[in-house]
Design a protein around this nucleic acid. Structure first.
Lengths: 212, 212
DNA sequence: CGTACTTTTGAATCGCATCAAATCTGGTGG
DNA sequence: CCACCAGATTTGATGCGATTCAAAAGTACG
């Protein structure tokens, strides 16, 4: 779908981006399954995910699919700002509302507006901390420990919204989906976790931590 | 040791930092075992590792030690620039030469010199890519695969220098040191890997990839 | 109503963690 | 110089947990 201006920019973006840059951004709704970019493509746009879910993934040497990042709210591949090409691909796994920011004007704004550059650095710092948390999580040994760590760090108040099903979570945790299903069932049986399903087509499942 | 000005700043830093900021930086040599900062401490200095090795680690909920990052060359905890306190601790694991950069002047320079801010953003982007590579590595299932991935991504020309022994590498790979020793031995037996030890006290061991 | 996908359960297998112990290493102090 | 110690390295044995393969049931969507 072409750019639509009927929707305002998400608040987080409106506060971050300078007005001049906001003018050249395009908001669009993207269906599940679409690809934002492929590996080796030259970066021209930088994407921000307002709703939905986008997965950054990469084909490993053995042909296995590695999930580098699931983005539910935030920038996609912001590290490709100065890169000559993408190192991974971005796939929409849950219908999303995206903002596309042209890279050239973005770099221009960063170079001329110090306040914006500072905010951008703060955003990158936050992203760094998030990634370190993910590394910490992947270093945990058990499936249950990884899942609980995910809910604690990525969830809000001990509750994690699932936009795209448990299978996608399993990939992010670096475990087989069978192992994750079993672990969730066990934790539920032990009363440590509660899974709620959305009643409607808006299947916003949710994992909530109990007794802790 | 107090600041010494007998040594110039490392080239990478000299090119990155504005002259005014270089003037307030302190170079120092730090022994193995020293701690640069503890969790919950308020960040006042930002460290750059010129030589040696510094490990960013954190005590997990179970009391296990999680290695978030091994820094052999680059910044330590650069994400704490705007943070109110550290989330992890930094331990020197191999005698290191460090540059301490006061945070306040650093933030001042970032806010007033757009070119510097841009360079800083580029550095953060590089760090983000490195961390994504680490996540990718930790998602691999086998010890051997993780090790080979480490050598490929962190090494230079298929050869990785070890500043602090295999045990520290095991922690970074998220595996037990026994498993890593066995894996290295197996790979050596298969002719896929060669381990060289430094002849002198400068025990710069090295892992080199063969036949690939 | 059929197709594609997720979810679920089962069973067999394998790799790694763990515990244990021996050897080797560098560095320290007598 | 040597005894000694702390840590790294190495090898062995055992058990657990995850992967893998397989198959069935549930669910969304056209």
């Amino acid at each position: 779908m072409a750019a639509t201006f009927e929707h305002e920019l998400p608040l987080a973006l409106a506060q971050l981006l300078p007005p001049a840059l906001q003018g050249v951004c395009a908001t669009s709704r993207v269906q599940r399954g679409e690809r934002l970019f492929r590996p080796r493509a030259k970066p021209r746009l930088l994407f921000y995910v307002a709703h939905g879910e986008v997965v950054l993934q990469r084909l490993a040497s053995r042909g296995e699919l590695l999930v580098l990042q699931r983005v539910r709210q935030g920038f996609v591949a912001e590290a490709s700002l100065h890169a000559s090409h993408y190192h991974c691909e971005a796939l929409v796994t849950s219908a999303a509302e995206l903002v596309a920011i042209p890279i050239d004007p973005l770099k221009q704004a960063l170079a001329t507006q110090p306040g914006f550059a500072i905010s951008w650095i703060a955003m990158l710092n936050q992203e760094l901390r998030r990634l370190r948390a993910q590394c910490e999580r992947l270093a945990l040994k058990g499936v249950a420990e990884r899942l609980l760590h995910l809910i604690e760090t990525e969830g809000q108040g001990g509750s994690l919204a699932l936009e795209a099903g448990l299978k996608s979570v399993a990939a992010e945790l670096g475990v087989s989906h069978e192992a994750l299903y079993r672990s969730v069932a066990t934790l539920e049986r032990q009363g440590l976790l509660q899974r709620t399903r959305g009643p409607e087509r808006s299947s916003v499942a949710r994992l909530t931590l109990l007794h802790r």
